[in-house]
Structure formats: C-alpha cells, structure tokens
Design a protein around this nucleic acid. Structure first.
Lengths: 202, 202
DNA sequence: GTCTATAAGGTGATAGAC
DNA sequence: GTCTATCACCTTATAGAC
C-alpha cells in the first residue's frame, strides 16, 4: 500500500467519479468523499471542476492514444506487427475497460476538448501509412486506403468494449462469462480477421 | 411544414437537447426554450426529467437496433446479405450521426436502462446465427464464431461514427471532407473487407 | 392546456479560522 | 494545508390563477 499525498488522492478519486458519471453528472462532493478529504481542498489544488476534469481527461486520453507508431516500427513482418498491436491494445483495454466510453462520451459532448490535446501529444500516423503503402506496393496485401485499414483495426478492438451493455445483453443474453470469453478470443481472432481480409491471394 | 401539437414538440426538442448534452447535462429550461413552450408544460406532459429522457432514449434505441434479422432473411446469397446490411445500416447512421454516441454514453452511465428495453423490442439474433452456421457447414466461409462475425460487422459500421472527433482530427488532420469521404467509401468497402476476411479459399 | 410564481433542495466556489 | 461555514446561484418540480 503506497502512501499518497492529497494531490494524488484527488486525481485518483476524480478519475473514478468522472469516468463513472461524466463531467456533468459528477459531483465535487462525491469526489471529495471518494478521496476522503474536504470538498474545499479540491478547489485549493485544482481551482475548478472544469480544470480538474481536464486533468483527468488528458490522463485518460494519453493511456488510450494507441501506440500505433511503436507497434509498426522495426523490421518485423507486417502481419506480425498487426498481431502485436491488436494484442497489446486489447490488453490495455482489459485493464481500463471504462476509459473508451468515457473518452467517446465527453468528446461527443465537447469535441473542442480534443484540439488542446492534439499538440500536447505527438501522434504522427505517417509511418503507419508508409508501412501500409509499402505492403501494397510489394503486393503483400490487397489495395486498401491506409486510413481505412487503421480505422478497421481499431474498430475491431474498441467497439466490443464501448458497446458492452448491448453486446452482453443482446448477443450473449446477459452472460458476463460469454462476453468475457469473446473479448479474450478477440486478442488473437481480431488480428486473424484483419489479416485474412487484406492478405493478397493473387 | 407539418403542424405539431405540444406533446410532439416536446419530444422533438428533448431529443435534440438530450442527444447533445446527455441526461445529466441537459436542462429542462433549454428543452422548453427549444420547444417554444413553458417549462412547466414539460412536467404536465411527462411528469419528470427522467421519464422524458426514458421516452427519448427508447425512441433513439429503436431507430438503431439494427434490423439484422430482416437483412438476413430470404434466399439471397450470404455475401449479398452482408452488403445489403452494411449499406442500409451506414445509411441510417448517415441520417442520425449523433445517436450512436448518445446510446453508448447513456448506457455507459447506466447499463440497467437497457434491461427495460430488451423485452419491449424483440431482438432475436438466432436466425442470423443459423445463417452463419449454415455457410460454415457448406464451407462457403471460414470457421468463425457467429457472434464474433456479427460484432465485427457492426463494429466496422458504428465505430467510425462514434470516434468521429478522434478520427477526423488525428487520422484526417481536421478535414471534415476527408472524414466524410471515408464514411461514404465505407458503405461498400466495409462489406468488401468482411467478405474478404471470411470467404473460404480452400 | 398553458401560464406565473415559488418552493425545496442542490451546486460550485470562496472566506476565514486553525 | 486542512477544516467549517456560508454565499450566490441554479435546478427540478409543484401550486394555483386564467
């Protein structure tokens, strides 16, 4: 059990409450209770609800900005890179299952929030584009718009988690176990699906 | 211009405000202003904010409960069915681009909400499962868990829309035009991607 | 059915003692 | 740094006139 100072305790508590309730639904009192401190200390450390939220949102976004670039560096086989990315990304999701919905919800309410973060994180997808185009040129994979392929891979990882209530209740008739099995399967199967879709069969 | 009575005007206004701001972020005053009526009329017709919201949520959910079953009925070729479903579903999304985020956000805040709706809509996916399993048996498509295939198809349709701010700003560097072109392309390309992934090449 | 007025309770934020 | 007390405002909801 690590000893935390007040500033850190607030962030941990704020993450929990904001992720669960959203900006509009969260209450400063609830965050204070969760942190085991007085409400006015929230303002002492972070001045306003909005500023505290921005702090939390940036941390959450950073966790989930996919390390696409890193996964696509190096000389490994292109299909291995896809397998590695899918496995790594789904593992992050496993550990933080509520963050994708949180990001999507709050960005839906206020898309401008993202613009602040773009510069602050460097998210250049160009190397991934280049890698995809090279594979197409080498005729290893079928013709596809690189952006489409990137979106497809991430969609197959993220959607099953953001739509959890719907999938669990409608596809798996309420079974948490079946839902979890599907997510686990996906760490391998999602990459297999993608590779099968793009592999050149000429 | 169709003449609307007060009850209908309220629902239309409530849809707009709730979808934009969410349950917690929406204000009854704003809904009243949007409908051009007095705030107390909202309570006269719908008793409480929560009840009005539930009304709106059910309408939104119904619009988006994918008509999977319908698309998979009939004797058409299985791949044609997929093409038809993807095109139809992406066309609905085109017309209601903010509803998927709305449903995901509000279900994230309160997953129990879905349970009320399940019974009220009949959403039996069994016929789709059967159709998929038959194709596998006939060796027309590769071995795949039917639930995985269904989730993949919907993921490829829905994710690009719910993650719009991220995709538009990071993948397309802020270009609304590029984003829209991608969505349009997808009406054909998403089905092609899926078919290419599952088609048996033995 | 529609309005005005107001109740009743929350909400983020700050002042000031310790 | 941390607390108590309190401000100023906002929010849902209702009562009652027309």
């Amino acid at each position: 059990m690590v000893e935390k100072n007040t500033e850190e305790k607030i962030i941990v508590a704020a993450e929990k409450v904001f992720i669960e309730k959203g900006l509009a639904g969260a209450r400063m009192q609830e965050i204070a209770d969760e942190a085991g401190i007085n409400k006015s200390l929230l303002h002492y450390y972070y001045r306003s609800k909005e500023k505290l939220f921005t702090m939390v949102f940036k941390i959450a976004f950073k966790t989930f900005a996919p390390d696409l670039i890193k996964a696509f560096e190096g000389d490994d086989d292109f299909f291995v890179k896809i397998e590695r990315f899918v496995f790594a990304y789904l593992s992050i999701i496993d550990k933080n299952p509520h963050i994708p919905v949180f990001i999507i919800s709050e960005l839906g309410n206020n898309p401008k929030r993202l613009v602040d973060i773009i510069g602050y994180l460097d998210l250049n997808v160009q190397p991934v584009y280049d890698a995809i185009e090279e594979e197409i040129k080498k005729k290893m994979i079928k013709e596809i718009e690189p952006s489409d392929l990137i979106i497809n891979v991430i969609a197959l990882c993220v959607f099953p988690v953001v739509a959890k209530p719907i999938i669990k209740n409608i596809v798996f008739k309420g079974s948490e176990e079946e839902y979890k099995k599907m997510l686990d399967r996906r760490k391998v199967e999602a990459a297999r699906f993608v590779i099968s879709a793009i592999k050149n069969t000429d």
